[in-house]
Design a protein around this nucleic acid. Structure first.
Lengths: 149, 149
DNA sequence: GTTAAATTCGACAAAAAGGTCTACTTTAGT
DNA sequence: ACTAAAGTAGACCTTTTTGTCGAATTTAAC
């Protein structure tokens, strides 16, 4: 099971970080991303399509085509990606799953969760892929070693 | 979609908090919990069964039966419940979904997520249902008002 | 001991999420 | 123009999760 984000969204975050490692204008093919990150190729293709439609990626078809960042990596936060793929659920949903959890009708965990949510946002989600992508290289190498090419 | 915990686990957490509002020895029927919390009756029954088998709840069949806490409410944390219903996934899984994320092969969000995870554990998950259940009354009332009985 | 009320148990159905496949379109290069 | 390589698009399949149903079992109370 995935925590916090859907698998789709996790794949999208990983892929965007991967594209960011290629610099501002570098084009990357779906196949390369899928192989490097061990994500099902065709499934990833759809996720990239959504990211492309939202403007976070630019796509080009045909020979030599692929995906590039839609704007500077410093201007793309994880939250931007999450909003495209998972909407606002992380921000809105109750940690304990109570329906209609809000300031007026809080669940027992509401005050604490509100603080945590802000901390997650500040310490992870608001960070840009420019800032985070350099740390991806280690991970990519370890994935490559873990099985086959 | 649910965040952090599976729906099953969310229902289990809610139900345990509800039982705790009845005091140490109070018996509660599945039906009552299901109606108060708007959880599908039969689905909840299975969750309670699992909690019962784990010892967090005591069950008694027949007329006047129902569920009661398996030990003092002060000795049951949310984490105890989560372990029964979701296992150790919250503690082990990577926030960005990278496989094999660890201290040796960290993902870009690993250090920050490690801190957050500790904060979530300390500020929410280690708290007992004794501590949290009093705040459930508001929520129960608001649920009752929101639709029908 | 019969009955009614409760949990237990297993099979099944429905919905959501994840993933695959194939054909289409666009495009660079020749 | 032709070809090969890329993304685009939609139908479809599989798995997991959630939810339903009904019968079996236990038990308190009369």
């Amino acid at each position: 099971m995935s925590i916090i984000f859907s698998r789709r969204c996790e794949y999208g975050l990983q892929a965007m970080l991967y594209v960011a490692t290629k610099g501002q204008t570098g084009r990357v093919m779906t196949r390369e991303i899928a192989e490097a990150l061990r994500i099902p190729h065709h499934y990833l293709a759809k996720i990239l399509e959504d990211l492309s439609q939202s403007g976070l990626l630019l796509s080009s078809k045909g020979v030599g085509g692929g995906f590039a960042l839609g704007r500077p990596a410093t201007k793309i936060s994880l939250l931007d990606i999450i909003e495209v793929l998972d909407g606002s659920e992380f921000m809105e949903n109750c940690a304990l799953g109570f329906p209609g959890c809000s300031e007026e009708h809080p669940c027992p965990a509401h005050p604490a969760w509100k603080i945590i949510k802000k901390q997650i946002t500040d310490s992870i989600l608001r960070r840009s892929i420019a800032e985070l992508s350099p740390d991806l290289h280690h991970k990519i190498r370890s994935l490559r070693k873990s099985r086959g090419t």
